[in-house]
Amino acid sequence: MSAPPCLILFDVDGTLVDSQGAIVAAMTAAFAGLGLDVPARAAILSIVGLSLDHAMARLAPDLPRTRQAELVAGYKHAYNAQGQADGAARGSPLYPGALQMLEQLNAAPGTLLGVATGKSQRGLRALLAAHGLERMFVTTQVADHHPSKPHPSMILTAMAETGVAPEQTVMIGDTSYDMDMARAANVAGIGVSWGYHGRAQLSAARQVIDGFDALPACLNEIWKTTA
């Protein structure tokens, strides 16, 4: 009897790609375009992973929702214009070892890969196309269709689409939002130390890794404990 399939879900910004330059630049343009003080870089990076409406509510809590919505629109415009000018791959390069690990996992029998990201469908499609990753993922969950992380909707939908059980699913991400989402969906969370939240903020993770080369052993340990 063959083993049940495994589903590995990846966050994108701060996990697969280093998009901090593009995100900070677009956020700066959004705030400056409305004549508002630009949040500190650390504050901007702290909200990466949230859907944009939630992100703006945290960065500008005193603004009315209509103004927060203007910030969202300004961010989207600046980010898309920047991507067209510089290229998505250049503005958001893959972290070292990411491509090799994705190829290795994608080739493994019974392993399904997916994405759960705060990016829009448009933004994700552009990024995956720029890096030639469209073929890698059987399920892609984006902010357009779900409540913001850490709500478990993205993971629950990915499991429903692929027919994979919670005990055979893992969520890999760099923020507390990813790990809290995994816990809410009753799946294992693997934190990565190279992203935008520090190790101390990844307390809900089953394990935290310092490089993609550590991922296979980590996954094997998780599958072993759930077998």
Rank of each mutant, 00 (worst) to 15 (best):
F137K: 07
D180E: 15
A60Y: 09
R206E: 15
D178Q: 13
L113H: 06
D11W: 13
G123D: 09
M136D: 07
P61A: 12
R135E: 05
S193T: 08
T139G: 08
Q100F: 03
A55Q: 12
G83F: 06
A130C: 09
E221H: 10
G211P: 00
I47P: 02
D53A: 10
T162F: 06
Q68I: 11
Y75R: 01
M181V: 13
I47T: 03
W194E: 07
A32Q: 01
A43W: 07
L215S: 07
G33H: 05
H54K: 09
I222F: 08
E134K: 09
T111W: 05
Q121M: 05
L112I: 15
A108I: 00
S203A: 15
T139E: 06
Y79E: 01
D62C: 08
Q201G: 07
L219E: 03
R58D: 15
C218A: 05
L34K: 00
G35S: 03
I44R: 05
R58A: 15
S51F: 00
G132A: 08
A107P: 02
L34N: 06
A32E: 03
G163L: 11
L124K: 11
L34T: 00
D213W: 04
S46Q: 00
G83Y: 02
L133N: 05
Y177C: 10
G97R: 11
T157P: 03
A184V: 02
E221M: 09
K119H: 02
P5I: 04
I44P: 04
A165V: 15
L105Y: 05
A204L: 13
L63G: 04
G163S: 11
R122N: 12
E70Q: 15
L59A: 15
S148W: 08
A108M: 12
S46C: 07
G163D: 08
Y177A: 14
A126T: 13
S193W: 02
L112R: 13
A85Q: 15
A217C: 07
G35E: 07
A217M: 06
H145S: 02
G118W: 02
A29D: 04
S51I: 01
T169G: 15
G35P: 00
N186D: 13
S176I: 13
L128V: 10
E103H: 12
T169M: 14
H145T: 01
Q100V: 00
D144V: 07
M181P: 15
L124D: 10
A205F: 13
G33N: 03
M136K: 07
L124S: 10
A227Q: 14
A98N: 04
D210G: 12
P93Y: 06
A69R: 12
L71E: 10
G35Q: 03
T140M: 07
I209C: 10
V164Y: 09
M1K: 14
G33D: 01
R122K: 14
L128Y: 10
P147G: 07
A22C: 12
Y95D: 06
Q207S: 15
S2T: 12
A26N: 09
L156G: 06
N106S: 12
